[in-house]
Write a protein that binds this DNA or RNA. Sequence first.
DNA 1: TTATATCATGTATAGGCTTACATAATTTTT
DNA 2: AAAAATTATGTAAGCCTATACATGATATAA
Lengths: 345, 345
Amino acid sequence: MAVTIKEVAKAAGVAPSTVSRVIADHPRISPATKKKVKKAMKEMGYHPNANARNLANRSTQSLGVVMPSSADKALQNPFFPEVLRGISAVAHELDYSMLLCTGETDDEMLEAVKRMVYSNRTDGIILLYSQVNDPIMHFLLEQNFPFVIVGKPAERVDEITHVDNDNVRAGKEITHHLIELGHERIAFIGGSEDRIVTIDRMRGYELALEEAGLPYLEDYRIHTEFLKSGGRQAVHELFSLPKPPTGIVIADDLMSIGVVNMLEEFGKRVPEEVSIVSFNNVYLSEITRPPLTTVDIHIHGLGSQAAKCLIEKIKNKEEPAKRIIVPFDIKYRSSTKEIKTKQEG
Amino acid sequence: MAVTIKEVAKAAGVAPSTVSRVIADHPRISPATKKKVKKAMKEMGYHPNANARNLANRSTQSLGVVMPSSADKALQNPFFPEVLRGISAVAHELDYSMLLCTGETDDEMLEAVKRMVYSNRTDGIILLYSQVNDPIMHFLLEQNFPFVIVGKPAERVDEITHVDNDNVRAGKEITHHLIELGHERIAFIGGSEDRIVTIDRMRGYELALEEAGLPYLEDYRIHTEFLKSGGRQAVHELFSLPKPPTGIVIADDLMSIGVVNMLEEFGKRVPEEVSIVSFNNVYLSEITRPPLTTVDIHIHGLGSQAAKCLIEKIKNKEEPAKRIIVPFDIKYRSSTKEIKTKQEG
DNA sequence: TTATATCATGTATAGGCTTACATAATTTTT
DNA sequence: AAAAATTATGTAAGCCTATACATGATATAA
């Protein structure tokens, strides 16, 4: 059994409460006893017991982090380790620990979150995704439990603290880049339409087309989970169109890699024949072939800001809902190319 | 304040200890009172407080998971989300939660681990990496704190429970595959030589060469962190050799992608001019171009086995050290090609 | 110098749960 | 039918820390 506050107290010849106060750096402890107690703590190898402490404090000093359910392969997205790092950076600094929550199915996830909340294992929760009609979010809302979202809430946007990029603008700007290069037939490939991030990025894509006076074709929009075969089929159809696109806006770097692969299969080369842009700027996008022109969304920043907001909210339940927009910038690399021959008006 | 055991007891007309026993499903509680108490719990929305419980039990019901320090980009490896899923699967099942531990520097990591251990935040630790002379491992050993390694310990192999693939054999077999295809000039590219996984895979590579009577050249071995520029330089040198390799064994799928990219830059095509094999079989390796022939190490299994072992060890301190070898299999895809023209004797 | 404010520390309780031990009720044994 | 064993539940003492309140010692004010 580890050494307790009592034993330290006895050794230092003071009361347990005094030791506790020394730990908390209470101002009304004389320098002399402070020193004496600290010495005893060192000598005896004392370390406070987090459980006891948290019980007394009615807190846990830990942040729950909820990943999307891992039904799909999306979880292998390097986005996640990177946000985790961001969260970890400030959590560590402010002396919080991170409780991770994954699960195979949505039900399993919800159950896991409920357990975390009910059993008081965490002081607050970060949702690493945002989707339409999310039961977990509803639960948290209903319980009035502190949480923040990385991404934009599907509803009650003004009541829920969230950390996001301006994905609409990012979508618009990156699409605009393609337009500037002379592209007029631009497709959009994104994941599930339930994910807010997909919706926003697509919205930006639409706006850019509109602004440029380019037609907006239903056939140019693909939503797929990208589990290989499904995605292949979709891309195949896209390029079987009478007027196939010359540029594609893809909602995620990881998908881009799959798309490049499929295009190659169909004999289309990137960027010579098709230009591609995407989002996230994971490390991968730099080392893949071709290196991707992509929106750097500052994943690490998303994570660290989310952690910061959540901790503020935990410390002060009255903290108003906030919206933090992490700026993005575009990394211009080699997956796009100017288009010379204007494709008929 | 949440409802406590006492309140439930009062409502059900029993003693708090009875309620506690109902929760623990104690056999000596009559079905009648069990039912009565459960009803009260439901009605009042009672949920046990994890902190109080853990304090009384001197346990935490949580597993600490230590990722490598994120100094390098290696953390963006999809390997990690995938092991986490594996760990999570059994942790969840056995009602443990996962405490994540990352850090920028090695010192920060060590400090974080010390805090976890000293403050009793976790019952045991899973190390997601293994390297030579790891201060964290030494600390854990010295404290006699339950931990398991995903990978092979650098020392005291028989005293430390670990879950690993037979990386030497995997290295040998995958290299052998290249040899079977007629390759005789085979290089090896791996990450840091401090990582045991690199060492083992390279050892397998060497064994395969030896067995086939192929020469083993110093110049054919590259170790790099693969932070782009460094890797590029190395690959450049490799292919400036008088006799450049026709096949490469690469220690990790993620690196493979970088290598393919660089080769392309140097005008070498995969697999037409250079064959490539690697390890891990992350989702990416399937969708990249070309799809990689790679060793499927069953990442999920590594994680789940590790969690299982750790929990066993937590429950029984006397549990002997174990070594679990998760089987691997090779996914044959399109990054290798038979070599026709025997390159001079 | 005495009353009062300030400071340094101690006492005791709370936080929510588990569990060894005690006790009352029931069943089994002889 | 009394003694013994078993069963069902209660009592109370932890687990370790934080903190409101109490107390004694100094310093300040009147």
